[in-house]
Nucleic acid binder design. Structure first.
Lengths: 214, 214
DNA sequence: TGAATTTAATCAAACGATTGATTATAATTA
DNA sequence: TAATTATAATCAATCGTTTGATTAAATTCA
Protein backbone atom coordinates (compact mmCIF):
# COMPACT_ATOMS: atom_id res chain seq x y z
CA UNK A 1 0.00 0.00 0.00
CA UNK A 2 1.24 3.42 -0.90
CA UNK A 3 0.37 6.39 1.23
CA UNK A 4 0.61 10.07 0.62
CA UNK A 5 2.32 11.99 3.39
CA UNK A 6 0.30 15.01 4.43
CA UNK A 7 3.42 16.95 5.22
CA UNK A 8 6.67 16.85 3.30
CA UNK A 9 9.38 14.68 4.86
CA UNK A 10 12.51 16.16 6.38
CA UNK A 11 16.13 15.34 6.98
CA UNK A 12 17.46 12.03 5.74
CA UNK A 13 14.07 10.87 4.52
CA UNK A 14 13.63 13.94 2.38
CA UNK A 15 17.17 13.63 1.02
CA UNK A 16 16.63 9.97 0.12
CA UNK A 17 13.27 10.58 -1.51
CA UNK A 18 14.70 13.40 -3.56
CA UNK A 19 17.67 11.28 -4.59
CA UNK A 20 15.27 8.48 -5.48
CA UNK A 21 13.08 10.75 -7.56
CA UNK A 22 16.11 12.04 -9.42
CA UNK A 23 17.98 8.77 -9.98
CA UNK A 24 14.96 6.52 -10.53
CA UNK A 25 13.73 9.01 -13.10
CA UNK A 26 17.07 9.39 -14.82
CA UNK A 27 18.36 5.82 -14.84
CA UNK A 28 15.43 3.72 -13.75
CA UNK A 29 14.75 1.89 -10.51
CA UNK A 30 16.79 -1.22 -11.12
CA UNK A 31 19.75 0.64 -12.58
CA UNK A 32 20.07 2.65 -9.39
CA UNK A 33 21.96 1.02 -6.53
CA UNK A 34 21.28 1.69 -2.88
CA UNK A 35 24.83 2.97 -2.47
CA UNK A 36 24.29 5.45 -5.26
CA UNK A 37 21.11 6.63 -3.58
CA UNK A 38 22.81 7.06 -0.24
CA UNK A 39 25.73 8.90 -1.81
CA UNK A 40 23.48 11.26 -3.77
CA UNK A 41 21.45 11.92 -0.62
CA UNK A 42 24.60 12.41 1.44
CA UNK A 43 23.32 9.88 3.89
CA UNK A 44 24.31 6.53 5.26
CA UNK A 45 23.36 3.42 3.34
CA UNK A 46 21.60 1.75 6.24
CA UNK A 47 19.09 4.56 6.51
CA UNK A 48 17.22 3.25 3.49
CA UNK A 49 16.28 0.14 5.41
CA UNK A 50 15.80 2.07 8.61
CA UNK A 51 13.37 4.61 7.25
CA UNK A 52 11.68 2.77 4.41
CA UNK A 53 12.21 -0.90 5.14
CA UNK A 54 14.25 -1.34 1.98
CA UNK A 55 14.79 -0.12 -1.52
CA UNK A 56 11.25 -0.94 -2.59
CA UNK A 57 9.90 0.97 0.37
CA UNK A 58 11.81 3.99 -0.89
CA UNK A 59 10.23 3.49 -4.31
CA UNK A 60 6.79 3.60 -2.70
CA UNK A 61 7.74 6.70 -0.76
CA UNK A 62 8.85 8.35 -3.98
CA UNK A 63 5.54 7.47 -5.62
CA UNK A 64 3.73 9.02 -2.67
CA UNK A 65 5.83 12.15 -2.93
CA UNK A 66 5.17 12.41 -6.67
CA UNK A 67 1.46 12.13 -6.03
CA UNK A 68 1.70 14.77 -3.34
CA UNK A 69 3.50 17.18 -5.65
CA UNK A 70 1.16 16.53 -8.53
CA UNK A 71 -1.80 17.34 -6.31
CA UNK A 72 -0.09 20.50 -5.17
CA UNK A 73 0.63 21.56 -8.75
CA UNK A 74 -2.87 20.74 -9.88
CA UNK A 75 -4.39 22.76 -7.08
CA UNK A 76 -7.93 22.48 -5.84
CA UNK A 77 -10.41 21.50 -8.54
CA UNK A 78 -12.27 24.58 -9.72
CA UNK A 79 -15.88 24.41 -10.64
CA UNK A 80 -16.56 25.17 -14.26
CA UNK A 81 -20.27 25.79 -13.75
CA UNK A 82 -21.62 28.80 -15.54
CA UNK A 83 -18.60 29.28 -17.77
CA UNK A 84 -19.17 30.51 -21.30
CA UNK A 85 -17.60 28.41 -24.07
CA UNK A 86 -15.03 31.13 -24.68
CA UNK A 87 -14.13 31.30 -21.00
CA UNK A 88 -13.88 27.53 -20.79
CA UNK A 89 -11.52 27.52 -23.75
CA UNK A 90 -9.40 30.24 -22.20
CA UNK A 91 -9.14 28.31 -18.95
CA UNK A 92 -8.21 25.14 -20.84
CA UNK A 93 -5.54 27.04 -22.72
CA UNK A 94 -4.16 28.55 -19.53
CA UNK A 95 -3.95 25.16 -17.83
CA UNK A 96 -2.25 23.53 -20.81
CA UNK A 97 0.16 26.43 -21.23
CA UNK A 98 1.11 26.04 -17.57
CA UNK A 99 1.62 22.30 -17.91
CA UNK A 100 3.63 22.77 -21.09
CA UNK A 101 5.86 25.34 -19.41
CA UNK A 102 6.39 23.12 -16.39
CA UNK A 103 6.92 19.93 -18.32
CA UNK A 104 8.97 21.48 -21.04
CA UNK A 105 11.43 23.54 -19.12
CA UNK A 106 11.26 22.97 -15.36
CA UNK A 107 14.44 21.08 -14.46
CA UNK A 108 12.74 18.88 -11.89
CA UNK A 109 10.01 17.85 -14.31
CA UNK A 110 12.18 15.49 -16.33
CA UNK A 111 12.94 12.88 -13.70
CA UNK A 112 9.44 13.20 -12.26
CA UNK A 113 7.70 12.61 -15.58
CA UNK A 114 10.12 9.84 -16.47
CA UNK A 115 9.56 8.13 -13.16
CA UNK A 116 5.80 8.51 -13.22
CA UNK A 117 5.46 7.31 -16.80
CA UNK A 118 7.75 4.34 -16.21
CA UNK A 119 5.67 3.35 -13.21
CA UNK A 120 2.51 3.74 -15.27
CA UNK A 121 3.77 1.86 -18.31
CA UNK A 122 4.99 -1.02 -16.12
CA UNK A 123 1.58 -1.08 -14.49
CA UNK A 124 2.92 -1.10 -10.96
CA UNK A 125 1.04 -0.31 -7.80
CA UNK A 126 1.61 3.36 -8.51
CA UNK A 127 -0.89 3.23 -11.35
CA UNK A 128 -3.90 3.13 -9.09
CA UNK A 129 -2.65 5.83 -6.77
CA UNK A 130 -1.66 8.30 -9.46
CA UNK A 131 -4.91 7.65 -11.27
CA UNK A 132 -7.09 8.06 -8.22
CA UNK A 133 -5.61 11.23 -6.81
CA UNK A 134 -4.44 13.01 -9.91
CA UNK A 135 -5.40 11.82 -13.35
CA UNK A 136 -8.94 10.81 -12.47
CA UNK A 137 -10.10 14.12 -10.99
CA UNK A 138 -8.01 16.22 -13.35
CA UNK A 139 -9.26 14.37 -16.40
CA UNK A 140 -12.82 14.90 -15.24
CA UNK A 141 -12.23 18.61 -14.79
CA UNK A 142 -10.62 18.95 -18.20
CA UNK A 143 -13.41 16.96 -19.82
CA UNK A 144 -15.95 19.31 -18.33
CA UNK A 145 -14.10 22.33 -19.68
CA UNK A 146 -13.71 20.68 -23.06
CA UNK A 147 -17.40 19.90 -23.18
CA UNK A 148 -18.38 23.46 -22.37
CA UNK A 149 -15.92 24.87 -24.88
CA UNK A 150 -17.02 22.56 -27.67
CA UNK A 151 -20.66 22.13 -26.80
CA UNK A 152 -20.37 18.37 -26.55
CA UNK A 153 -21.40 15.95 -23.85
CA UNK A 154 -18.71 15.76 -21.13
CA UNK A 155 -19.37 12.06 -20.62
CA UNK A 156 -19.15 11.19 -24.30
CA UNK A 157 -16.41 8.88 -25.41
CA UNK A 158 -15.13 11.39 -27.95
CA UNK A 159 -14.61 14.09 -25.33
CA UNK A 160 -12.87 11.79 -22.88
CA UNK A 161 -10.57 10.44 -25.59
CA UNK A 162 -9.84 13.92 -26.88
CA UNK A 163 -8.74 15.00 -23.44
CA UNK A 164 -6.38 12.02 -23.23
CA UNK A 165 -5.02 12.91 -26.64
CA UNK A 166 -4.49 16.46 -25.44
CA UNK A 167 -2.54 15.22 -22.41
CA UNK A 168 -0.49 12.95 -24.64
CA UNK A 169 0.50 15.88 -26.82
CA UNK A 170 2.07 17.69 -23.91
CA UNK A 171 3.74 14.67 -22.33
CA UNK A 172 5.47 13.74 -25.54
CA UNK A 173 7.42 16.95 -25.54
CA UNK A 174 9.09 15.76 -22.35
CA UNK A 175 9.47 12.12 -23.26
CA UNK A 176 10.69 12.76 -26.76
CA UNK A 177 12.66 15.81 -25.67
CA UNK A 178 15.90 14.75 -27.33
CA UNK A 179 14.16 13.90 -30.56
CA UNK A 180 12.21 17.15 -30.63
CA UNK A 181 15.34 19.20 -29.97
CA UNK A 182 17.25 17.42 -32.69
CA UNK A 183 14.49 17.71 -35.24
CA UNK A 184 13.63 21.31 -34.45
CA UNK A 185 17.26 22.32 -34.45
CA UNK A 186 16.94 23.61 -30.90
CA UNK A 187 20.01 23.42 -28.68
CA UNK A 188 17.74 23.14 -25.67
CA UNK A 189 14.13 23.47 -24.57
CA UNK A 190 14.01 26.51 -22.35
CA UNK A 191 11.18 28.82 -21.35
CA UNK A 192 11.12 30.37 -24.83
CA UNK A 193 10.78 27.07 -26.67
CA UNK A 194 8.32 25.75 -24.10
CA UNK A 195 6.27 28.89 -24.65
CA UNK A 196 6.14 28.30 -28.37
CA UNK A 197 5.09 24.70 -27.74
CA UNK A 198 2.36 26.07 -25.48
CA UNK A 199 1.27 28.41 -28.26
CA UNK A 200 0.81 25.54 -30.69
CA UNK A 201 -1.08 23.48 -28.12
CA UNK A 202 -3.34 26.40 -27.28
CA UNK A 203 -4.05 27.05 -30.94
CA UNK A 204 -4.75 23.36 -31.49
CA UNK A 205 -7.13 23.51 -28.56
CA UNK A 206 -9.02 26.36 -30.20
CA UNK A 207 -9.28 24.56 -33.50
CA UNK A 208 -10.38 21.29 -31.90
CA UNK A 209 -13.09 22.80 -29.75
CA UNK A 210 -14.33 25.51 -32.10
CA UNK A 211 -14.25 23.59 -35.36
CA UNK A 212 -17.48 22.56 -37.02
CA UNK A 213 -18.45 18.98 -36.21
CA UNK A 214 -19.31 16.93 -39.22
CA UNK B 1 27.90 1.70 -32.75
CA UNK B 2 24.56 0.17 -33.52
CA UNK B 3 23.91 -1.45 -36.84
CA UNK B 4 20.73 -2.47 -38.52
CA UNK B 5 20.76 -6.01 -39.87
CA UNK B 6 19.55 -6.17 -43.46
CA UNK B 7 18.11 -9.60 -42.92
CA UNK B 8 16.29 -10.86 -39.86
CA UNK B 9 18.43 -13.01 -37.53
CA UNK B 10 17.80 -16.71 -37.07
CA UNK B 11 18.21 -19.45 -34.54
CA UNK B 12 19.61 -18.56 -31.16
CA UNK B 13 20.24 -14.95 -32.16
CA UNK B 14 16.64 -14.44 -33.14
CA UNK B 15 15.41 -16.14 -29.97
CA UNK B 16 17.64 -13.99 -27.79
CA UNK B 17 16.71 -10.75 -29.53
CA UNK B 18 13.04 -11.55 -29.21
CA UNK B 19 13.46 -12.41 -25.54
CA UNK B 20 15.36 -9.17 -25.08
CA UNK B 21 12.71 -7.11 -26.81
CA UNK B 22 10.03 -8.68 -24.65
CA UNK B 23 11.78 -8.60 -21.28
CA UNK B 24 13.59 -5.28 -21.72
CA UNK B 25 10.30 -3.73 -22.71
CA UNK B 26 8.32 -5.30 -19.90
CA UNK B 27 10.72 -5.02 -16.99
CA UNK B 28 13.50 -2.78 -18.22
CA UNK B 29 17.06 -3.57 -19.20
CA UNK B 30 18.61 -3.61 -15.76
CA UNK B 31 15.82 -5.60 -14.19
CA UNK B 32 16.39 -8.42 -16.67
CA UNK B 33 19.16 -10.89 -15.92
CA UNK B 34 21.13 -12.78 -18.53
CA UNK B 35 19.88 -16.05 -17.08
CA UNK B 36 16.32 -14.89 -17.50
CA UNK B 37 17.03 -13.94 -21.09
CA UNK B 38 18.56 -17.30 -21.89
CA UNK B 39 15.69 -19.15 -20.24
CA UNK B 40 13.02 -17.14 -22.09
CA UNK B 41 14.88 -17.69 -25.36
CA UNK B 42 15.26 -21.40 -24.61
CA UNK B 43 18.94 -21.06 -25.24
CA UNK B 44 22.16 -21.45 -23.32
CA UNK B 45 23.49 -18.57 -21.27
CA UNK B 46 26.90 -18.57 -22.91
CA UNK B 47 25.39 -17.76 -26.29
CA UNK B 48 24.75 -14.17 -25.25
CA UNK B 49 28.48 -13.60 -25.03
CA UNK B 50 29.14 -15.74 -28.08
CA UNK B 51 26.78 -13.90 -30.41
CA UNK B 52 26.61 -10.40 -28.97
CA UNK B 53 29.72 -10.05 -26.86
CA UNK B 54 27.65 -9.52 -23.74
CA UNK B 55 24.40 -8.23 -22.38
CA UNK B 56 24.93 -4.72 -23.69
CA UNK B 57 25.65 -6.12 -27.13
CA UNK B 58 22.26 -7.80 -27.01
CA UNK B 59 20.73 -4.47 -26.09
CA UNK B 60 22.28 -2.92 -29.18
CA UNK B 61 21.05 -5.80 -31.29
CA UNK B 62 17.54 -5.29 -29.94
CA UNK B 63 17.72 -1.60 -30.80
CA UNK B 64 18.81 -2.53 -34.31
CA UNK B 65 15.95 -4.97 -34.63
CA UNK B 66 13.45 -2.38 -33.40
CA UNK B 67 14.76 0.07 -35.99
CA UNK B 68 14.49 -2.61 -38.67
CA UNK B 69 10.88 -3.38 -37.76
CA UNK B 70 9.93 0.27 -37.53
CA UNK B 71 11.31 0.86 -40.99
CA UNK B 72 9.40 -2.15 -42.28
CA UNK B 73 6.17 -0.90 -40.73
CA UNK B 74 6.71 2.62 -41.98
CA UNK B 75 7.34 1.38 -45.48
CA UNK B 76 9.10 3.25 -48.22
CA UNK B 77 8.58 7.01 -48.01
CA UNK B 78 5.93 8.01 -50.50
CA UNK B 79 6.13 11.25 -52.35
CA UNK B 80 3.32 13.62 -51.54
CA UNK B 81 3.92 15.81 -54.59
CA UNK B 82 0.79 16.83 -56.42
CA UNK B 83 -1.60 15.77 -53.68
CA UNK B 84 -4.70 17.84 -53.12
CA UNK B 85 -5.29 19.06 -49.56
CA UNK B 86 -8.17 16.62 -49.19
CA UNK B 87 -6.05 13.73 -50.43
CA UNK B 88 -3.20 14.72 -48.13
CA UNK B 89 -5.59 14.75 -45.20
CA UNK B 90 -6.94 11.35 -46.14
CA UNK B 91 -3.45 9.91 -46.33
CA UNK B 92 -2.56 11.43 -42.97
CA UNK B 93 -5.67 9.93 -41.46
CA UNK B 94 -4.94 6.53 -42.93
CA UNK B 95 -1.40 6.54 -41.59
CA UNK B 96 -2.47 7.61 -38.11
CA UNK B 97 -5.33 5.12 -38.05
CA UNK B 98 -2.82 2.38 -38.88
CA UNK B 99 -0.41 3.51 -36.20
CA UNK B 100 -3.22 3.76 -33.65
CA UNK B 101 -4.42 0.26 -34.47
CA UNK B 102 -0.91 -1.17 -34.24
CA UNK B 103 0.07 0.69 -31.11
CA UNK B 104 -3.25 0.28 -29.39
CA UNK B 105 -3.96 -3.35 -29.88
CA UNK B 106 -1.07 -5.28 -31.44
CA UNK B 107 0.30 -7.50 -28.68
CA UNK B 108 3.92 -7.04 -29.72
CA UNK B 109 3.60 -3.27 -29.74
CA UNK B 110 3.64 -2.87 -25.97
CA UNK B 111 7.15 -4.10 -25.20
CA UNK B 112 8.48 -2.49 -28.37
CA UNK B 113 7.07 0.94 -27.60
CA UNK B 114 8.09 0.64 -23.97
CA UNK B 115 11.61 -0.31 -24.93
CA UNK B 116 11.97 2.35 -27.58
CA UNK B 117 10.55 5.12 -25.41
CA UNK B 118 12.71 4.12 -22.46
CA UNK B 119 15.78 4.23 -24.66
CA UNK B 120 14.71 7.62 -25.99
CA UNK B 121 13.86 9.13 -22.63
CA UNK B 122 17.15 7.95 -21.15
CA UNK B 123 18.92 9.49 -24.11
CA UNK B 124 21.00 6.43 -24.88
CA UNK B 125 22.85 5.67 -28.07
CA UNK B 126 19.60 4.43 -29.53
CA UNK B 127 18.28 7.96 -29.72
CA UNK B 128 20.40 8.88 -32.70
CA UNK B 129 19.70 5.68 -34.57
CA UNK B 130 15.95 5.71 -34.09
CA UNK B 131 15.84 9.36 -34.97
CA UNK B 132 17.95 9.04 -38.09
CA UNK B 133 16.28 6.05 -39.66
CA UNK B 134 12.72 6.39 -38.46
CA UNK B 135 11.53 9.52 -36.74
CA UNK B 136 13.48 11.94 -38.88
CA UNK B 137 12.28 10.80 -42.30
CA UNK B 138 8.80 9.95 -41.05
CA UNK B 139 8.39 13.29 -39.36
CA UNK B 140 9.45 15.03 -42.56
CA UNK B 141 6.92 13.05 -44.58
CA UNK B 142 4.12 13.77 -42.13
CA UNK B 143 5.04 17.44 -42.01
CA UNK B 144 4.79 17.61 -45.78
CA UNK B 145 1.36 16.01 -45.73
CA UNK B 146 0.26 18.29 -42.91
CA UNK B 147 1.46 21.33 -44.82
CA UNK B 148 -0.44 20.34 -47.94
CA UNK B 149 -3.59 19.53 -45.99
CA UNK B 150 -3.53 22.77 -44.04
CA UNK B 151 -1.97 25.08 -46.59
CA UNK B 152 0.90 26.02 -44.29
CA UNK B 153 4.64 26.00 -44.80
CA UNK B 154 6.05 22.49 -44.19
CA UNK B 155 9.20 23.96 -42.68
CA UNK B 156 7.37 26.28 -40.31
CA UNK B 157 7.82 25.72 -36.62
CA UNK B 158 4.08 25.43 -36.07
CA UNK B 159 3.72 22.57 -38.56
CA UNK B 160 6.69 20.65 -37.19
CA UNK B 161 5.47 21.03 -33.62
CA UNK B 162 1.94 20.07 -34.59
CA UNK B 163 3.21 16.85 -36.12
CA UNK B 164 5.08 16.03 -32.90
CA UNK B 165 1.93 16.75 -30.94
CA UNK B 166 0.03 14.43 -33.26
CA UNK B 167 2.55 11.66 -32.65
CA UNK B 168 2.36 12.25 -28.92
CA UNK B 169 -1.40 11.81 -28.99
CA UNK B 170 -1.09 8.32 -30.38
CA UNK B 171 1.83 7.22 -28.24
CA UNK B 172 0.08 8.17 -25.05
CA UNK B 173 -2.64 5.65 -25.68
CA UNK B 174 0.00 2.94 -25.36
CA UNK B 175 2.01 4.46 -22.54
CA UNK B 176 -1.00 5.41 -20.48
CA UNK B 177 -2.87 2.28 -21.49
CA UNK B 178 -3.81 1.25 -17.95
CA UNK B 179 -4.99 4.74 -17.10
CA UNK B 180 -7.05 5.07 -20.26
CA UNK B 181 -8.70 1.71 -19.72
CA UNK B 182 -9.53 2.53 -16.13
CA UNK B 183 -10.90 5.95 -16.93
CA UNK B 184 -12.86 4.87 -20.00
CA UNK B 185 -14.28 1.86 -18.20
CA UNK B 186 -12.81 -0.45 -20.82
CA UNK B 187 -11.79 -3.94 -19.73
CA UNK B 188 -9.17 -3.95 -22.46
CA UNK B 189 -8.02 -2.08 -25.53
CA UNK B 190 -8.76 -4.35 -28.46
CA UNK B 191 -9.25 -3.68 -32.14
CA UNK B 192 -12.64 -2.11 -31.48
CA UNK B 193 -11.38 0.37 -28.90
CA UNK B 194 -8.27 1.09 -30.93
CA UNK B 195 -10.53 1.83 -33.87
CA UNK B 196 -12.52 4.33 -31.89
CA UNK B 197 -9.29 5.96 -30.74
CA UNK B 198 -8.28 6.13 -34.39
CA UNK B 199 -11.62 7.79 -35.20
CA UNK B 200 -11.03 10.53 -32.67
CA UNK B 201 -7.48 11.10 -33.89
CA UNK B 202 -8.64 11.25 -37.50
CA UNK B 203 -11.38 13.71 -36.65
CA UNK B 204 -8.92 15.82 -34.67
CA UNK B 205 -6.67 15.76 -37.69
CA UNK B 206 -9.46 17.11 -39.86
CA UNK B 207 -10.27 19.90 -37.42
CA UNK B 208 -6.63 20.87 -36.96
CA UNK B 209 -5.80 21.06 -40.64
CA UNK B 210 -9.09 22.43 -41.96
CA UNK B 211 -9.86 24.95 -39.23
CA UNK B 212 -9.59 28.66 -40.00
CA UNK B 213 -6.29 30.12 -38.88
CA UNK B 214 -6.62 33.23 -36.81
C1' DT C 1 18.32 17.95 40.61
C1' DG C 2 21.04 14.17 38.92
C1' DA C 3 21.45 9.50 37.51
C1' DA C 4 19.34 5.92 34.81
C1' DT C 5 16.78 4.50 30.96
C1' DT C 6 14.55 4.74 26.54
C1' DT C 7 14.14 6.08 21.98
C1' DA C 8 15.41 7.46 17.42
C1' DA C 9 18.91 8.25 14.21
C1' DT C 10 23.17 7.33 12.19
C1' DC C 11 27.34 4.90 11.21
C1' DA C 12 31.10 1.51 9.44
C1' DA C 13 31.51 -3.07 8.41
C1' DA C 14 30.17 -7.26 6.83
C1' DC C 15 26.70 -10.76 5.01
C1' DG C 16 24.88 -13.98 1.61
C1' DA C 17 22.97 -13.85 -2.87
C1' DT C 18 23.00 -12.61 -7.51
C1' DT C 19 24.95 -10.37 -11.29
C1' DG C 20 27.45 -10.46 -16.03
C1' DA C 21 31.21 -12.64 -17.78
C1' DT C 22 34.44 -16.36 -18.83
C1' DT C 23 36.29 -20.85 -19.42
C1' DA C 24 36.90 -25.63 -21.09
C1' DT C 25 34.75 -29.47 -23.02
C1' DA C 26 31.33 -32.00 -25.51
C1' DA C 27 27.62 -32.47 -28.76
C1' DT C 28 25.38 -31.06 -32.86
C1' DT C 29 24.81 -29.37 -37.39
C1' DA C 30 25.55 -27.87 -42.16
C1' DT D 1 35.89 -29.29 -41.25
C1' DA D 2 34.07 -25.22 -39.30
C1' DA D 3 30.39 -22.96 -37.16
C1' DT D 4 27.07 -23.33 -33.82
C1' DT D 5 24.94 -24.84 -29.59
C1' DA D 6 24.90 -27.13 -24.98
C1' DT D 7 26.70 -28.08 -20.46
C1' DA D 8 28.56 -26.86 -16.31
C1' DA D 9 31.67 -24.83 -13.47
C1' DT D 10 33.80 -20.73 -11.88
C1' DC D 11 35.17 -15.88 -11.46
C1' DA D 12 35.29 -11.06 -9.53
C1' DA D 13 32.15 -7.51 -8.77
C1' DT D 14 28.16 -5.67 -7.15
C1' DC D 15 23.77 -6.12 -5.31
C1' DG D 16 20.25 -5.21 -1.28
C1' DT D 17 20.24 -6.12 3.33
C1' DT D 18 21.66 -6.82 8.09
C1' DT D 19 24.42 -6.27 12.04
C1' DG D 20 26.32 -4.25 16.33
C1' DA D 21 28.08 -0.03 17.95
C1' DT D 22 27.66 4.90 18.67
C1' DT D 23 25.52 9.30 19.36
C1' DA D 24 22.22 12.65 21.07
C1' DA D 25 18.02 13.92 22.74
C1' DA D 26 13.93 12.80 25.44
C1' DT D 27 11.97 10.47 29.31
C1' DT D 28 11.76 8.33 33.69
C1' DC D 29 12.95 7.70 38.21
C1' DA D 30 15.19 8.25 42.75
Amino acid sequence: MIEIPDKPPEGAQKALIEAGLLLFGQKGFDATSTRELAAKAGVNLALIAYHFGGKDGLRRAVVGEVARRLMAVAGAPRSSAGLTPAAALRRLQTILRGVAAFIGSAPEAGPMVNFALTELSRGGAATELIHDCFIGPKHAELSELWAIASGADPDSEAVKLSVFAMIGQVLYFRLGREIVMRRMGWPTIGPSEAGRIGDVIAENLRLLTQGEPR
